[in-house]
């Protein structure tokens, strides 16, 4: 359903803002946790939110296909990284060695 142009512009702007926020949060999680899977999940979650906002504005077949592809990629990347972590692949090893901080460790002031 196509609404007024100001609403359309608002949705597009909102989607763009969410994409930028997703990139920022993803990088922040990567920097703090050194966990690629978690950082990617955060980024893709925000991208999904942006895609849903775009879908509210202009439900063309192109927008539909884009959102569907984002969902598919999100699922594939999540599945691949989980499988990698279970198998102790590069990403899994990187997390357990370079990740350094076990999740049960209480937060310390020197964490940087």
């Amino acid at each position: 359903m196509t609404g007024p142009s100001w609403w359309s512009a608002l949705l597009q702007g909102g989607a763009l803002l969410l994409t930028v926020l997703g990139l920022g949060c993803g990088l922040l999680v990567l920097a703090r946790r050194r966990d690629v899977r978690q950082a990617l999940s955060v980024l893709l979650e925000f991208l999904l939110a942006a895609g849903l906002l775009r879908l509210s504005d202009d439900p063309t077949y192109r927008a539909l296909a884009t959102t569907a592809v984002i969902i598919l990629i999100r699922k594939l990347v999540g599945f691949g990284l989980r499988a990698n972590q279970r198998a102790g692949g590069p990403v899994g090893r990187a997390r357990s060695t370079a990740g350094a901080v076990p999740v049960s460790e209480p937060p310390s002031g020197s964490a940087s």
Partner: peptide, 28 residues
């Protein structure tokens, strides 16, 4: 759309807060 947008913005703020408070996985 408003629920999705506000939820995402709120989550971004919480992500930043969690990052500066500590590095615990459960928070994220």
């Amino acid at each position: 759309a408003i629920v999705i947008f506000l939820g995402a913005v709120l989550a971004a703020v919480k992500f930043v807060r969690a990052a500066f408070r500590g590095r615990r996985s459960e928070e994220f």
